[in-house]
Amino acid sequence: MPPKKASRELHEVSTQSVEIAEIRMDGGTQPRAKLFEEVVDDYAQDMKQGATFPPVIVYFDGEEYWLADGFHRVRAKEAIGETSVTAEVHLGTQRDAVLYAVGANAAHGLRRTNADKRRAVIRLLRDFEWREWSDREIARRCGVDHKTVGSLRKDIYPTDDQSKEFRKGADGRITNVSNIGKSTKTINESNKRQRRKKPAATLNTIVEQSQKVQIDDIWRLGKSHLLFCGDSGSAKFQKLLPIEISLLLFFPRKDKPWLPEKPTNVHNTLLFHTSYGEDLHLETLRGIIENCLSGTTDANDPIVMINLIDPSLFILIDELECSCFCAEPDPQRCTDALTVWTAINQTVKKIST
């Protein structure tokens, strides 16, 4: 019987056999938008025939092993019935694993898709610490062009003017980057255009123009999301749901017993209840939900959300390229969700009343 993890001698880097059951794959370290089953099948067949694969990369914090690179290889090992995998074990935390993962496969391994690159950049931009880094530093970490980072930053923080002008490098220095690469003439012309430009629509203007949601309304947000104003048990909402549900997010308003039983077509479930209500720190909640989404879903996976605790969750789910079906009985909360969604220049359309 192997010794307990707490008693294992820690090394900076070592190659060893690690039990797959001990490897955590739910900490937001998955760098790809989705796993490809055909790749898993190919790897599994090669392994059966004796092919040797490079060790997977894991980070060990003294208690947990966090998988940073090698998700397809681990799944292939499981597919052929093996219970352990050869791993290059680094001494580090879950956050260290995330930082390694966002740049994994940039120059080797299975080629990353554009969705993979976007997911990696967004993972850093939504972090309370890493989003303070410069576009170039995040680009270096993720193995992408810095313009890609800048574009995604504007999408995520459209009203954060300060973040567009000042960036923190990995060394902690703050730099004004608003005029990098521009000539003096270009800067002066840009300043003149800014003075002539009409003021942008404020959030208050958007709120005034947003449509009010009523009970039994069904709204489509963008191309992938549906918002139903009503109870989740309504037959009208049930008809909207997909056959298979990758993740169920349930935010009960009252402290009541857990669901009688989990629906058989739901693969993963997160229930989150707080007695603090509106005093809940939403940034903390978003981090919890983002980690849950990253660890349980791939691109295009369907998510069902019961009660909309945070109107910006549609944005987070959209950034991870999943589709959401939400039931929220409070018309005002639904209206708030449409307002937030519209504020990032996304389309909304009422499809039923």
Rank of each mutant, 00 (worst) to 15 (best):
M25W: 03
A68C: 00
G70Y: 02
I80M: 03
K48F: 04
T93S: 15
T93Y: 08
V85N: 01
T93Q: 10
G150K: 11
R112S: 01
E78W: 02
G81W: 06
N114H: 11
R126T: 14
P55T: 06
P31G: 08
Q45R: 14
S134D: 10
V39T: 13
G62E: 09
G109S: 08
A120S: 15
A97G: 12
R119L: 08
R153I: 04
A101Y: 08
A51E: 11
T83P: 00
D96N: 13
Q49A: 12
D127Y: 06
A107T: 15
R111F: 01
V149Q: 09
F71Q: 02
K77C: 04
E37V: 03
E88K: 15
D41W: 02
H90P: 01
P31A: 04
P55C: 05
L124G: 10
R111S: 10
T148V: 13
R73I: 03
E129A: 08
W66F: 15
T93N: 05
F36L: 10
P55H: 05
L152K: 00
R140C: 01
T93W: 08
A68N: 00
G28Y: 11
A76G: 09
R123F: 00
G92W: 09
L110Y: 15
E78D: 03
G62I: 10
E37W: 04
K34A: 13
I57D: 12
D96I: 01
V40F: 10
L99M: 14
G28H: 10
G109F: 08
V74T: 14
S151D: 07
K117L: 09
I156H: 05
V102T: 06
N105A: 08
H90A: 00
